[in-house]
Simulated assay, not measured.
Amino acid sequence: MTSDKASGRIGRPGRFWHDNGLGLAFGTAFLIVLVAQAFAGHADYNNRLLGDGMAQIGFGDYITSSDFGVDVMENWQSEYLQFFLYIFATVWLVQRGSPESKELHKAGRESDEDQMVGEHAREDSPTWAADRGWRQGAYARSLGLVMGLIFLLSWLAQSITGTAAYNEQQLRQLQAPTSWAEYLLSSDFWNRTLQNWQSELLAIGSMVILSIYLRQRGSPESKPVGAGHDDTGVEG
């Protein structure tokens, strides 16, 4: 077996940054945008307070407020819903010509040999992949289940922070606050939710269809530039 040192994985300056560049770049960009959102949201919130004739609040008070929380959570839940739906939908549904789809003949759960589970597991396969019991079944669905769980938790957090933010606005207007259950049925909650869901579904559909005919050289989300439009499940 070739050692990491022999293969050049040790001793090369900046190897960690190179090998983890995608995760580090998006993690850093996420934090930058989240902080920028907090500052922009704080300014906007204080402008609304001034418009209502109320005193402004500090930055620390804003980022711990329900107003900031609901804005963050409503975006998180829609993003994780997108991944949850896409992960499970692409098990069974295919799209001719799209690199976002499996090959047409592979629709479904695929064979144990294709998935390298049980007796077909390799030496470097995760331990639970070789198990024949419930652990393999759980691990085989772990990505979709975790995405679904994060979606539900962030949606719950959105509903709780949304209730608090809604009631704060109600009190400013000298109107009666509402309960959490009542807020779940309100137009405010579903307006916040559905406007995010429709944008995520549009983004998924656009990526699936546009990637049939358009290319991005070097990207695994695109087919090779010279691949035919009908080539399916082929990544560049």
Rank of each mutant, 00 (worst) to 15 (best):
T2I: 09
A6L: 09
S7C: 01
G8H: 03
I10E: 05
I10R: 03
R12F: 09
P13Q: 06
P13E: 04
P13M: 02
P13T: 05
P13D: 05
N20H: 13
N20K: 15
G23R: 06
A25G: 14
F26P: 02
T28I: 15
V33S: 07
A36E: 04
A38R: 02
A40K: 03
A40W: 04
H42V: 03
H42M: 06
H42N: 04
R48V: 10
R48T: 09
R48E: 11
L50P: 00
M54N: 03
I57G: 01
I57V: 14
D61N: 11
S66M: 01
D67C: 02
F68V: 01
G69C: 07
V70L: 05
V72M: 15
V72H: 04
M73H: 02
E79A: 15
E79V: 13
Y80I: 04
L81E: 06
Q82W: 15
F84D: 08
F84S: 15
L85C: 15
L85Y: 10
L85A: 14
F88V: 14
T90E: 08
L93T: 11
L93V: 14
V94S: 12
Q95W: 15
R96H: 06
R96E: 12
G97S: 08
G97D: 05
S98I: 13
P99N: 10
P99S: 11
P99M: 11
E100A: 14
K102T: 13
K102G: 14
K106L: 11
E110C: 11
E110M: 14
E113H: 14
D114E: 08
D114M: 08
D114Y: 13
D114T: 08
Q115L: 07
Q115D: 02
Q115M: 10
V117Y: 10
V117M: 06
G118S: 09
E119V: 05
H120Y: 14
H120A: 09
R122L: 08
R122T: 04
E123T: 07
P126W: 01
W128F: 12
A130H: 03
G133H: 00
G137S: 09
G137F: 01
G137E: 06
Y139P: 00
Y139E: 00
Y139M: 03
A140S: 08
R141N: 05
R141A: 04
R141H: 07
S142M: 10
G148H: 01
L149M: 08
F151H: 07
F151D: 00
L153Q: 02
A157D: 08
A157Q: 12
T161H: 11
G162L: 03
A164K: 12
A165K: 03
N167G: 01
Q170H: 12
L171R: 13
Q175K: 15
W180D: 00
W180E: 06
A181Y: 05
L185Q: 13
D188I: 04
D188R: 09
F189G: 02
W190I: 03
L194K: 01
E200F: 12
E200R: 14
L201F: 13
L201D: 07
L201I: 15
V208C: 05
L210F: 11
I212K: 12
Y213C: 02
L214K: 09
R215P: 07
Q216P: 00
G218L: 06
E221C: 07
E221W: 13
K223L: 09
K223R: 09
P224N: 07
G226E: 15
G226M: 07
H229L: 05
H229E: 08
T232A: 04
V234D: 01
